[in-house]
Amino acid sequence: MSNPMNFAFLRKEALPPNGRKVAIIGAGPSGLAASGYLACLGYEVVVYDKLPQPGGLMVFGIPKKRIPPERIQAGVKRMERQFGVLFRTKTKICCSAPLHEEEGDHFSCDIRGLGELVREYDAIMICTGSWKSRKLGIPGEKLKGVHSGLEFLFPIRAARYASPNVSMPAVQGKRVAVVGAGHSAVDVVDSAHALGAEKVYMIYRRTVREAPCGSYEIDRIEEMGATWLERRTPLSVMGDDSVVGLELANGVTGETETLDVDMVVTAIGEIPTPPFQQELGLENVRKGEVRWLHMTSIDNVFVAGDVLTGPSKIGKAIYSGLRASRSLTNWLDLKAQDREDEYNYDEDKIDR
Score class of each variant (00 low, 15 high):
202 M>T: 11
162 A>R: 12
204 Y>R: 06
104 G>L: 05
273 T>H: 05
184 S>M: 09
224 M>W: 05
42 G>A: 12
239 G>I: 06
37 Y>Q: 08
346 D>Q: 13
47 V>F: 14
308 L>R: 08
168 M>L: 15
103 E>W: 11
269 G>T: 08
255 E>D: 14
184 S>P: 00
192 A>F: 05
169 P>R: 04
330 N>D: 13
202 M>Q: 13
284 N>P: 00
219 D>I: 04
180 G>D: 06
129 G>T: 03
55 G>T: 02
313 K>E: 15
101 E>F: 12
228 W>I: 12
175 R>S: 08
208 V>K: 13
99 L>H: 10
194 A>P: 00
298 I>R: 09
335 K>I: 00
160 R>T: 08
256 T>D: 02
43 Y>L: 06
161 Y>G: 06
69 P>F: 11
281 G>C: 15
26 G>Q: 07
76 V>E: 04
117 L>F: 09
161 Y>L: 09
126 I>R: 10
2 S>W: 11
146 V>A: 02
111 I>H: 10
48 Y>Q: 08
152 F>W: 10
65 K>S: 12
52 P>L: 00
124 I>Y: 01
202 M>G: 03
193 H>T: 00
58 M>D: 02
119 R>E: 14
71 R>C: 06
234 P>R: 08
285 V>W: 01
318 I>R: 11
208 V>G: 02
171 V>L: 08
32 L>G: 06
238 M>W: 03
116 E>V: 00
142 K>M: 07
69 P>V: 06
146 V>D: 01
210 E>C: 10
15 L>K: 14
350 I>T: 04
141 E>D: 04
115 G>M: 14
285 V>P: 00
265 V>N: 02
29 P>S: 14
18 N>T: 11
53 Q>Y: 11
293 L>E: 13
143 L>C: 01
200 V>W: 01
210 E>Q: 15
110 D>P: 00
106 H>N: 14
188 V>C: 08
300 N>H: 12
25 I>V: 12
